[in-house]
Design a binder for these strands. Structure first.
Lengths: 219, 219
DNA sequence: ATAAATTAATCAATCGTTTGATTAATTTTG
DNA sequence: CAAAATTAATCAAACGATTGATTAATTTAT
C-alpha cells in the first residue's frame, strides 16, 4: 500500500467518525445503530467492525480523536514553570472554554454517556480520559496553594465541579441557558462574540474571588 | 375494586416507577430494557404495558409523578421578606442541595432529557419547570444587589449556571465526582453525612466570596 | 360469576457481529 | 518484466441474541 492509499484510508475512517459523532450526539450510544451510522456514512456495515473492531470501538475512536488534539495543550500549561499559578489558571480557562464551546456537540454526547451510573467498559474508558484533564486543573490549584498564591482554605475538589459544571450547564442545557442568558447559545456567532469572552471573564473573576489569599476577614 | 385494592395497585405502580427511575438513570432510556426493569421490580414484563401502555409510557409516568411534587417548594423562600438576602441565599442552597441529592436518580434522568437539542413536549415542560426554580434564585440575587447587600459588579446569569452546574456535575457524573471527591457520591450514607453538608458549605462560601460588596480592592 | 390482575409463551423486528466471497492493490518470485 | 502469491478493502448475507410488545391462559378478588 502506497502513501496515497494510506491517506485515503485515513480520510475514510475520519469520515466515518465524523458521521458517527453526529449520530451518537443526536441519538445517544444505544440509540444509534450501526446500520444507521454506516448508512449515513455510505459505507458497508462491516467496515465499522473492520476498522474499529466494534461499535464501542467507533465510539472510543471519536473520543481519542477529539481528546488527543487538546490534551497536549492543557498539559503544557500545567507543566509550564515560567508562569505563576494565576496565569496558569487564566490560560487553562481560556483554552478550556474555547475548546468546549467549539466542540459543544461532542461534549453533550460525552456527558450523556458518563452520566450513566452503571459502570461499563465504556464509562471506565471515558472516565480515564476526562480525569486526565481534571488532574491538570487540580494540579494548578494544588500548586498555587502550596506556593501561597491561593488561599489554603479552599475546597479544591468541589472547585473542580464548579469549573466543569458551570461550563457543562451552559453547553448541556442549551434551552435553559439560552433563556437565562438571553440569546441562543448554540448560535456560532453568539458563541464567538458574546458567550466565550463572557464565560472566560466570569470564571476568572469567580475563581479569583474564591481563591484570593486574603487575611481571613471574619464573617 | 375497593379502596384497599386501589391503594395496592397504586403502590405497585409506584414501586415500578421507583425501580424504573433508578434503571433509567443507570443505563439511559435505550440502555434500559423492559425485561431488566420488570425483573428488578419483580413483576411480570407484561405488567409494564398493562399499567403504562409502553416503555415510553413508563418513562413519562416517572416525570409526571416527580414534576407534581417539584413545584411550590422553593417559592416560599423567595417571597419571605422577614429575612435578608444573605439568609435567603443560605436557605435556598440548603433546600436545593437536599432536594437534588435526595432525588439524584430523577435529576440524572431529567438532565439527560433536557440535554437533547431537539425540542419536544417533554423538554418544553421540563424547561418551564426548571425556569421557575431559576427565577426564584435570580430574584434573590437581584434583590440583594438592589438593596446593596451584594456587589453590583456580578454576572447574575452565569452565577445561575455555576450554582446549578456545580450541583449537576456532582450528581450527573457520579464516576468522575466520586474519583475527585474521594468517596462514592451515590452512597446514601455518604450523601447525608458528607456530601450534602460539604456541598452546602462550599456553595455558600463560593457565593459569598463572589457576591460580597467590598470596596473595590484593585487587582 | 364476573371483572381485574397476573402469568408464561410467543411475536416480528432489530440489534451488533461474523462469515465467506470478491475485488483491488501490493509484494514476491522466477 | 511478467506471472504468482499475498495482503487489504469491501460486500451481501446471515448469524444468534435481544428488543418492545402482544397473546391467550390462568389466578385472584369482588
Amino acid at each position: 500500500m502506497n502513501q496515497a492509499m494510506e491517506k485515503d484510508k485515513i480520510d475514510k475512517k475520519d469520515h466515518i467518525l465524523d458521521v458517527a459523532e453526529k449520530v451518537f450526539a443526536e441519538l445517544g450510544y444505544e440509540g444509534a445503530s450501526t446500520r444507521l451510522i454506516s448508512g449515513e456514512a455510505n459505507v458497508n456495515m462491516a467496515m465499522l467492525n473492520y476498522y474499529f473492531g466494534s461499535k464501542e470501538g467507533v465510539f472510543l475512536a471519536i473520543f481519542e480523536r477529539r481528546i488527543a488534539s487538546f490534551q497536549s495543550v492543557l498539559l503544557s500549561i500545567g507543566n509550564d514553570d515560567s508562569i505563576n499559578a494565576w496565569e496558569k489558571l487564566d490560560k487553562y480557562i481560556d483554552s478550556y472554554v474555547d475548546r468546549v464551546v467549539n466542540n459543544n456537540c461532542f461534549h453533550v454526547m460525552l456527558n450523556r454517556e458518563i452520566s450513566k451510573s452503571k459502570k461499563t467498559d465504556l464509562t471506565d474508558q471515558i472516565t480515564k480520559i476526562i480525569m486526565r484533564n481534571v488532574t491538570v486543573f487540580q494540579n494548578i490549584i494544588a500548586n498555587g496553594i502550596k506556593s501561597g498564591e491561593f488561599s489554603k482554605d479552599v475546597d479544591q475538589q468541589l472547585l473542580v465541579a464548579t469549573i466543569f459544571g458551570t461550563k457543562n450547564y451552559i453547553v448541556n442545557t442549551p434551552h435553559i441557558s439560552s433563556l437565562i442568558i438571553g440569546y441562543d447559545v448554540m448560535d456560532k456567532d453568539n458563541q464567538d462574540e458574546k458567550l466565550k469572552p463572557r464565560l472566560k471573564t466570569y470564571l476568572k473573576k469567580l475563581l479569583k474571588a474564591y481563591l484570593v489569599n486574603e487575611n481571613d476577614n471574619n464573617k
